[in-house]
Design a binder for these strands. Structure first.
Length: 920
RNA sequence: GGGCUCAUAGCUCAGUGGUAGAGUGCCUCCUUUGCAAGGAGGAUGCCCGGGGUUCGAAUCCCCGUGAGUCCA
């Protein structure tokens, strides 16, 4: 096993008098120009820059970013624009951008694609959700931040990567870093480089944490190893790694920390959000006396000197701090808590501006869910400190500051989300108040189970339950491990079906030549059958070339026939497998045969029209609903297709009509549809990551489809002009999940057919109503109202009829039961009528036993007036058994029945006896 | 993508298999006319849709639809 140690012995260090040293406190290895006792990082050493800035000049965040970028620009790096914070736009393994190197993963770091420049420098907005609890409290964590990175991509000579040669490596990187520190006026002797091997995502390498005055200001990572079971390096994750033939310089400079260092404020927030904090303090009505301000300042400074990595550390530290300042902890908390909230609000507002500025749409899934969480948390903080400003204003301030152009949409999204949350809170509040009242009355505490349900199913925080419970005088038991109990509710074992592909002869075959991109209107071709694989159902035929489009990108496979001299076989499915296209047939065309392939042209035309229409509908929706609209999924079909897009609200009927209008306008424009195969990075540079709406294709070159102004990476087949789509009819919109709206539409002939189906339904309804189709809505309404009125009339009449019957109808048998009159009657009517009749008899002071024998079942109702000692429930039980069923009800009114209609009369005849028995 | 909760009068919600309810709002009348006042009476319901179980379903089961929420 080799050690990484030698990798840290840089020539640069040797030439400049650095010594490798060991921290006497934590044992870490580090490099420095002077001899030092410790590594310089807390807890081994305190912050040395609070109230004593470490740079010559103070910088704002914007100035610091510019300082960083221009320094490296002047030192041969090319400045590149940052990527969105929504990293899932260009890679599917993460949700949010957490580092500048994310911009170049996976294709550049893997060597598949060239970087936009080499070397380059970027300041990348990042979001780390894992720090959400620490923000505001620790004084040093932010969820939203900018990572400055200077990157170089190196590869050995003779490799076939998208870049080649040595740009710069460790020595040069450390030198740049030191020079940048020096340009800030930092004495080089005060910097330490701590050895800290880096591992992540299958790669690894040596790395330095760069520490100055106790603060880690940069990390220099040298990615040079890849995971390899036979590798010679064993890293801290327990895996073995071997050297690669390419090397990536990955650095990260926390722009916020550099700004903080330059100002020496007690917390990082005061350095990076001074205006926001002043504004928020004003809105919250926080106005500290000089003495209080001084106390807060000294407390923050003390906290700065302590090793606080988590919010809990801060809570633990508070006692010590209060003690040292000689004030009660409660007083310190009273002063600090509102400030902590304000710091967090400033950070969260920036985080939301990043998210919505980069067009994340709130949702119950993915990045949208994260955005919702942050927004709701912000709302709670704002309410807690009593800031009476709409969230949209707070987020907009940041969006403005960050220079986003879609500010109106951002406002719209935030307003919609805040309203939704408000509604959730109100709904929840009512629920909790009711629950609290019940428990206050019963004198029992609200059980944990209820708390879990309120949170998990209704989104109500336990703290909110506690507040309301206190108001209502109920107790709450909130367990410490509340959130792990929530997690436990969710841990149902999900059987992950690993789809492992079996080794197959098809893997050995050469890639099939794809003819379908060459001329998308051609439907016939010739080919040689390379192999025929027998499957459980039918055969998979591999050809040397094909025009059959395999299933993919939401477009179903082509159908058709393969014709050889011996006959023809039907192609029912086509799949691509590692570049080999397999045609599913019922019979074998014979290996080695020459065949003529014939595509089912009608099917293909319809699919192409729908595929192009999908792009058009997407573009139209984008134009009507906003720039944030992008594809979240799509499925093309022969009769209709669907397109799912991100949007933060339901789509109204008016908007649908407008989208349909715009879409058809694009059809009428009859613009040609272009395809091209540019390099990935060129395509991204020109069109941005919105290219990847239908998924992220592999490979160095990607296929772009231009439909009007809309450009997408797409592997599907398209018509040649928008006019060929014919017509587009949006059939329906439905929400597939929160923040995602589905458009179901039809194109071309299918659109006409769909319209005809709808018309048929209308005509049929019109015929039934015997009116013109235009009059159907009015007629339907009229009939519905009339129908309801008739229902009421029938009810009235039923009661009148019942009253009349009670006066002595036919079939009525009156018997005397111990001084009370009982009426036994068979009326063969529905349940409502039976009940009404029984009621009417009871109102006359008579015991009622009424039966009915329609509809395959016998029904009996027994009513007993007040003061008569007969249990109707018992009576019905006996009588209903006689008709083979059962029954029950309260003592004064019971009903029952059974399937044996024939036995009804017999049962009624026995009723007097049953009643008498009951009396005894 | 998965889990959970919910759907009943215009609104907010009760209703655990047996005659659909309350508060509020609405209408009429009375009292008072000084503010969201008091009193009396009244009208309001495809109990989300479709199947099933049952003598009987708002209620139990299944499938939809819609809303909410938590987790990855």
């Amino acid at each position: 096993m080799s050690e990484l140690e030698s990798e840290y012995r840089l020539d640069y260090f040797a030439e400049n008098g650095f010594e490798r040293q060991t921290c006497s406190s934590c044992g870490a290895r580090f490099w420095s120009r002077t001899e030092r006792e410790t590594c310089g990082e807390p807890p081994c050493e305190d912050y040395g820059f609070i109230d004593d800035p470490g740079f010559e000049n103070a910088y704002s965040l914007v100035e610091m970013r510019e300082e960083f970028l221009s320094f490296f620009e002047e030192h041969d790096h090319e400045r590149v624009p940052p990527a969105p914070v929504a990293a899932n736009r260009w890679r599917d393994d993460v949700l949010l951008t957490q580092a500048s190197i994310y911009d170049f993963q996976p294709h550049v770091t893997s060597g598949q694609s060239p970087p936009p420049a080499n070397p380059l420098v970027v300041s990348q907005p990042c979001i780390r959700m894992q720090d959400i609890d620490n923000v505001g409290k620790t004084g040093r964590h932010t969820m939203a931040f900018e990572m400055g990175g200077h990157h170089a991509f190196n590869a050995d000579e003779g490799t076939d990567y998208a870049y080649e040669g040595e740009v710069y490596w460790k020595d040069q990187c450390v030198e740049y870093c030191e020079q940048f520190f020096a340009s800030m006026g930092v004495p080089r002797e005060e910097i330490t480089f701590i050895e800290d091997p880096w591992v992540g995502g299958g790669n690894a390498g040596p790395a330095f944490e760069v520490i100055y005055k106790g603060l880690e200001l940069a990390t220099l990572v040298f990615m040079m190893l890849e995971q390899d079971p036979d590798g010679e390096y064993e890293m801290k994750d327990g895996n073995t790694y071997s050297e690669m033939d390419r090397r990536v310089v990955d650095t990260g400079y926390g722009i916020e920390r550099w700004t903080w260092m330059s100002q020496g404020t007690p917390t990082v927030y005061e350095a990076i959000y001074p205006e926001s904090i002043e504004y928020l303090k004003g809105e919250a009505g926080i106005d500290l006396t000089e003495e209080e301000a001084d106390l807060v300042h000294r407390a923050s400074k003390l906290a700065g000197h302590m090793d606080i990595d988590e919010a809990e550390d801060m809570e633990a530290a508070r006692d010590t701090i209060a003690d040292r300042l000689d004030v009660p902890v409660s007083r310190l908390e009273e002063l600090m808590e509102p400030l902590e909230a304000i710091y967090a609000i400033a950070d969260h507002a920036r985080c939301l501006a990043y998210m919505f500025g980069d067009e994340i749409v709130p949702s119950n899934v993915g990045t949208g869910y994260l955005a919702r969480m942050v927004l709701r948390r912000t709302k709670r903080l704002v309410d807690d400190v009593g800031i009476d400003v709409p969230l949209e204003d707070l987020v907009d301030r940041e969006a403005d500051r960050l220079g986003y152009e879609n500010r109106e949409t951002i406002r719209d999204i935030v307003r919609t989300e805040e309203r939704k949350y408000q509604e959730t809170l109100e709904r929840g509040g009512r629920k909790v108040r009711q629950l609290a009242d019940e428990h206050a009355q019963a004198g029992t505490p609200i059980p944990t189970e209820k708390l879990l349900e309120l949170y998990d199913s209704h989104g109500i925080q336990p703290s909110m339950v506690a507040d309301i419970a206190e108001e209502r005088g109920a107790e709450v038991n909130e367990p410490d491990d509340f959130y792990s109990l929530v997690a436990a509710r969710h841990d149902s074992e999900e059987a992950l079906e690993a789809e492992h592909e079996e080794a197959d002869r098809a893997d050995e075959l050469p890639d099939t030549e794809q003819l379908y991109y060459e001329d998308q209107d051609r439907m016939e071709f010739e080919a040689v059958v390379l192999d025929v694989l027998e499957r459980e159902e039918g055969y998979d035929v591999a050809l040397d070339q094909t025009m059959f489009y395999p299933k993919g990108g939401g477009q179903p496979a082509d159908h058709g026939t393969l014709v050889s001299e011996d006959g023809s076989v039907e192609v029912t499915d086509v799949q691509m497998r590692d570049g080999v296209i397999l045609h599913r047939t019922e019979e074998s065309p014979g290996k080695g045969e020459f065949v003529t392939g014939q595509i089912d042209a009608e099917r293909r035309r319809r699919l192409m029209a729908h595929h192009t229409a999908t792009h058009i509908v997407g573009a139209a929706a984008r134009r009507v609903l906003g720039e944030h609209v992008r594809q979240a999924g799509a499925q093309k079909g022969v009769d209709s297709s669907r397109l799912d897009v991100n949007h933060y609200d339901r789509v109204s009927r008016e908007e649908v009509k407008e989208i349909e209008r715009v879409a058809n306008e694009m059809v009428t424009d009859n613009t040609p549809i272009r395809q091209e195969w540019p390099g990935r990075h060129e395509a991204e540079a020109e069109h941005g990551f919105d290219l990847y709406q239908g998924g992220i294709p592999p490979g160095e070159n990607i296929r772009l489809i231009h439909v009007g102004d809309d450009v997408q990476a797409c592997g599907g087949t398209h018509v040649s002009r928008t006019g060929d789509v014919g017509a587009i009819k949006i059939l329906n919109t439905e929400p597939v999940q929160d923040g995602v709206e589905r458009f179901v539409f039809a194109a071309g002939e299918a659109a006409v057919e769909a319209t005809q189906r709808t018309e048929d339904a209308l005509y049929e309804a019109a015929e039934t109503f015997d009116v013109n189709p235009q009059e159907v809505p009015d007629a339907a309404e009229r009939f519905f109202i009339e129908w309801k009125e008739r229902g009421k009339t029938i009810e009235d009449l039923t009661e009148q009829l019942a009253a009349a019957r009670a006066g002595g109808g036919e079939n009525a048998e009156e018997v005397d039961i111990d001084g009370t009159t009982a009426v036994i009657q068979r009326i063969d009517a529905d349940a409502d009528e039976l009940q009404a009749t029984a009621n009417a008899l009871v109102d006359d002071g008579k015991v009622a036993v009424v039966g009915s024998g329609i509809d395959e079942s016998a029904q009996i109702v027994v009513g007993v007036p007040e003061g008569v000692d007969v249990d109707a429930g018992e009576v019905i039980g006996v009588l209903a058994r006689k008709v083979g069923g059962g029954g029950g009800g309260p003592p004064d009114f019971a009903q029952g029945g059974g399937p044996d209609v024939g036995a009804l009369d017999e049962a009624l005849a026995e009723a007097p006896d049953v009643l008498r028995e009951q009396l005894e």
